[in-house]
Amino acid sequence: MKLAVKYFGMIAEAIGKQEEQLEITGNSVLEVDVFLKNKYAKLEFLNYKFAVNQVLVDGIKRLKENDEIALLPPFAGG
């Protein structure tokens, strides 16, 4: 399944880009997470939440073709 993935903050830095198109097997957010962690080992040690089509979701959220996924890290600074 083809997905558009966006990265923010430390996640974008760890991955080295702000967005990309990915071809992913599986159809849940959890599976995307495993896929991304295998592709980018640094993700294992970072905190983030997923949004799908600009809505915050949990891991069991089902995905469909061309969904837009965003990885949102918490920010500490003030």
Binding site: F45, L46, N47, K49, P74, F75, A76, G77
Partner: peptide
Amino acid sequence: FPEPPKAGSVPN
């Protein structure tokens, strides 16, 4: 964000 990140993992 239900849980805080690990101490020191998110810099300020």
